[in-house]
Design a protein around this nucleic acid. Structure first.
Lengths: 255, 255
DNA sequence: AAAGACGTATCACAATGTGAGAGGAGAGAT
DNA sequence: ATCTCTCCTCTCACATTGTGATACGTCTTT
């Protein structure tokens, strides 16, 4: 063996961890460590270290099972979380350029969930990461709705009633349908103070797979209106363009 | 520093991995590695090793995000999977003692999912891990149904119709209700050839939190009947008793 | 009581991870 | 275009640190 790889010890540990977890309790630890090719003391030392960090736990004597930390980490590695992590730095840059707040959102049972909120300066928006909003009146929501299959969209439109949160809220299913058509055609959605009298948003689509994502730029200013946002459309689209390859690298559906 | 812990390198790697994943793209890698206290070359070497194994991936330049392997491992560390892993060796022992097939199951939208099937000898049962069966006619299913809150159970009973898979299947909601009451009182459920003419099962409850689990012992023999299984009830219960502390150690709801 | 498997210690050796320093590669700014 | 800053990699001498044969305590099974 001429050149031994760097971090051989880490690599062995990962192999062991994966082998144990994938075995799912079928074989005793000794058998697994043997298969991975580790002598007993080494294997037990690694297992002890992994256990200390909660990546492994003791099952029945002679057996190990996946630990809670692993579950935590895995949860944080869900498509939603990875998308958030991958996008955040780019969104921060866009926020810096536009001096506005950027939101990243997904559709979850007929509501928009904001999975990332990025702003450079302190903003006075009521939005928060993890918050859910009605889809039909927010820019991200309408953007995502416009991408739904027709049958699903019809079911949504029939599921009303839609309440008017402000004077501008489009609560009429017919008008909403027209608006979604326009959005699909133009490729951008606007929230013209439809959820809050002072809030104006402009949203574009990001990706569809493995999870539909959209992002929006938001201003909260008395006196401004939605038209003020349109100049930023190009920047938004360029940002989306930057994000797409990034996301597809991180979120490959299956190999 | 007198005694350095064993597997210090692994420990550092885990710290770095967790820090990166938990940061969720908020700060660049350099900042995170600095916080963890790792010099740049070391941090990058570790990151490269983690990336090679798919635990990390590259985001935007200067950023890392959780990788697909991490998601896989985390999925395998879900409550269901950990429960399976933790139980399997014990179930295997019971299977050896009784020379029967042991099943472990959960309730998932009104059906039983078999998450583990253990048998020492080759069996000729049609069951498979991951398979779903009607709850109202299987022993594990009835056991789990009997533990449902009253309101949920009523909804289930009203959700029929229940089909007779064999002559013995209890398809009448009233009789089924009576049977579930008995099961709740006695603490065991029987499948007396209610799903397959040759299959007899005896099930007991395991745990309720964080996920209701039940296990069953199954014989497939022409000429035998459910009464033949009752002598094994004590062994089943002892086995459940063994598993309970094990499971609570592995599946602590939240810390 | 004996046999066997799990898990931990001990310890000398050297393999291997370490980290300063230098340098290449990109991106952004001027 | 050049400059500049940050990201990332390479090299290399050092000694920290992981390694694994052997051996011992402990628990479970026969």
């Amino acid at each position: 063996m001429p050149d031994s790889l760097p971090m051989a010890s880490l690599d062995k540990s990962i192999s062991l961890l994966m082998a144990v977890v994938k075995d799912s309790g079928r074989r005793p630890f000794s058998a697994i460590s043997a298969e991975v090719g580790l002598p007993a003391p080494t294997a037990y030392r690694i297992a002890a270290a992994l256990k200390k960090r909660g990546l492994l736990m003791n099952g029945q004597r002679g057996y190990y099972v996946a630990g809670r930390t692993l579950h935590d980490l895995g949860w944080r590695a869900s498509a939603k979380e990875v998308a958030t992590a991958a996008c955040r730095p780019v969104l921060r840059e866009l926020s810096r350029q536009t001096d506005a707040t950027i939101h990243l959102g997904v559709l979850e049972d007929d509501m928009v969930t904001y999975i990332a909120k990025v702003s450079v300066t302190e903003d006075d928006l009521f939005t928060r990461e993890g918050m859910q909003l009605e889809a039909y009146c927010s820019a991200i929501g309408k953007m995502l709705l416009s991408g739904l299959p027709d049958a699903v969209l019809q079911r949504y439109l029939a599921s009303g009633p839609f309440y008017k949160l402000t004077d501008n809220t489009i609560a009429d299913p017919t008008r909403l349908t027209r608006e979604l058509c326009r959005i699909k055609k133009d490729g951008f959605a606007i929230d013209d103070a439809e959820v809050d009298p002072d809030l104006h948003c402009l949203a574009v689509r990001l990706v569809e797979e493995p999870i539909p994502l959209a992002m929006s730029i938001a201003y909260r200013r008395g006196g401004s209106n939605a038209a003020d946002l349109l100049p930023h459309l190009a920047k938004l689209r360029k940002c989306a363009q930057t994000l797409r390859p990034l996301l597809s690298r991180c979120l490959v559906p299956i190999e």
